[in-house]
Simulated scan of single mutants.
Amino acid sequence: MIMNWIISMMEALGAFGVGVAVFLENVFPPIPSEVVLPLAGFTTTQGDLNVWAALICSVIGSVTGAYLLYGLGRVIGAARLRQIADKMWLVDASDVDKSLAWFDKYGKYSVFFGRLVPGVRSLISIPAGVDKMNPLLFGALTAVGSTIWNSILIWSGVMLGAEWETVSLWFERYSTVIYAVIALILAYVLFFLIRRRIRT
């Protein structure tokens, strides 16, 4: 089981293991930070791990994973996205240009607040790379947003102690609401694209 492996890694590597786990969570979403970080917080109360070291390593892991996905976005690039869009049924190259224009305007807010939203936290790095956002700005916004998210989860584990798993239940409910909102947005976008295609 993935979580058993993550727990073993944190036990063996300490704070560095927390950073590795968070890095993997960024590039492999099935590893949930909502479980890893509260557990790390609880572990700090047992004297086996320093809470500040765990937080710092977790932020480094978040930023490193985000940069990996940012690099993927840079490799894909806007030109390739336009080519892909032209071959798709409901979208075209102009939609890519509109999306990039929107990201030019609101990208800073998207990267920062996206770090606080399950399902978006990792993926927001890809459009930032496609849009070629300033890498230093991207890193700074990612670091600040990740520090807030990781701190909440780690300190929740610290405060709840042996009941740290309760945090996962709270954030599971939060995630469910977020996913429902995302599903509604995607449904609306699909409806809009189909209606546009029918009218043209």
Rank of each mutant, 00 (worst) to 15 (best):
residue 33 S to K: 02
residue 73 G to P: 03
residue 88 M to H: 12
residue 32 P to Q: 07
residue 135 P to W: 06
residue 30 P to E: 04
residue 105 K to S: 14
residue 98 K to R: 10
residue 57 C to K: 00
residue 50 N to I: 01
residue 124 I to S: 04
residue 20 V to D: 01
residue 114 G to D: 02
residue 196 R to C: 07
residue 91 V to I: 14
residue 26 N to Y: 04
residue 158 V to Y: 14
residue 128 A to I: 04
residue 175 S to N: 07
residue 99 S to N: 09
residue 190 L to Q: 07
residue 196 R to V: 04
residue 100 L to T: 09
residue 46 Q to D: 04
residue 172 E to K: 15
residue 5 W to R: 13
residue 24 L to A: 10
residue 123 L to T: 10
residue 166 T to M: 10
residue 118 P to D: 01
residue 194 I to R: 13
residue 1 M to L: 07
residue 178 I to C: 07
residue 164 W to G: 04
residue 88 M to S: 15
residue 158 V to T: 05
residue 91 V to E: 12
residue 57 C to F: 15
residue 57 C to P: 00
residue 4 N to Y: 04
residue 135 P to K: 10
residue 29 P to S: 09
residue 31 I to E: 07
residue 45 T to H: 12
residue 69 L to Q: 07
residue 99 S to V: 08
residue 200 T to Y: 06
residue 192 F to D: 08
residue 41 G to K: 01
residue 177 V to I: 13
residue 166 T to Q: 05
residue 19 G to T: 05
residue 123 L to S: 12
residue 63 V to N: 03
residue 152 I to P: 03
residue 59 V to Q: 01
residue 141 L to G: 06
residue 139 G to D: 11
residue 3 M to Y: 07
residue 72 L to V: 14
residue 99 S to M: 09
residue 140 A to F: 11
residue 132 K to I: 14
residue 63 V to Q: 01
residue 172 E to M: 11
residue 44 T to M: 12
residue 6 I to C: 02
residue 156 S to I: 01
residue 165 E to F: 12
residue 168 S to E: 06
residue 129 G to T: 12
residue 171 F to E: 08
residue 15 A to L: 09
residue 90 L to E: 08
residue 90 L to S: 08
residue 185 I to F: 05
residue 195 R to Q: 13
residue 16 F to E: 01
residue 94 S to W: 04
residue 29 P to H: 02
residue 171 F to S: 07
residue 168 S to R: 03
residue 139 G to S: 14
residue 109 Y to F: 13
residue 13 L to Q: 03
residue 117 V to L: 15
residue 100 L to Q: 14
residue 31 I to Q: 06
residue 71 G to D: 06
residue 92 D to A: 10
residue 90 L to V: 01
residue 176 T to K: 15
residue 160 L to R: 01
residue 77 G to T: 14
residue 165 E to R: 11
residue 50 N to A: 12
residue 115 R to F: 03
residue 153 L to V: 05
residue 61 G to A: 08
residue 109 Y to G: 15
residue 8 S to Q: 12
residue 154 I to P: 02
residue 112 F to I: 01
residue 182 I to L: 08
residue 115 R to N: 15
residue 67 Y to M: 06
residue 67 Y to W: 08
residue 1 M to Y: 03
residue 20 V to F: 09
residue 86 D to T: 05
residue 137 L to A: 13
residue 83 Q to Y: 05
residue 146 S to V: 12
residue 62 S to P: 03
residue 183 A to V: 06
residue 40 A to I: 04
residue 2 I to V: 15
residue 141 L to E: 09
residue 141 L to I: 05
residue 19 G to P: 01
residue 60 I to L: 13
residue 160 L to C: 12
residue 109 Y to E: 06
residue 32 P to I: 11
residue 161 G to D: 04
residue 191 F to A: 08
residue 190 L to M: 14
residue 18 V to F: 08
residue 176 T to H: 06
residue 152 I to N: 06
residue 192 F to K: 07
residue 102 W to M: 08
residue 104 D to L: 03
residue 73 G to K: 03
residue 45 T to C: 09
residue 19 G to C: 11
residue 128 A to K: 05
residue 8 S to T: 10
residue 159 M to S: 12
residue 17 G to Q: 02
residue 73 G to Y: 00
residue 148 I to E: 04
residue 124 I to M: 08
residue 128 A to R: 05
residue 69 L to C: 10
residue 33 S to G: 13
residue 135 P to I: 11
residue 37 L to W: 00
residue 167 V to M: 04
residue 200 T to H: 14
residue 31 I to P: 06
residue 177 V to L: 11
residue 121 R to K: 10
residue 28 F to E: 10
residue 16 F to I: 10
residue 76 I to R: 00
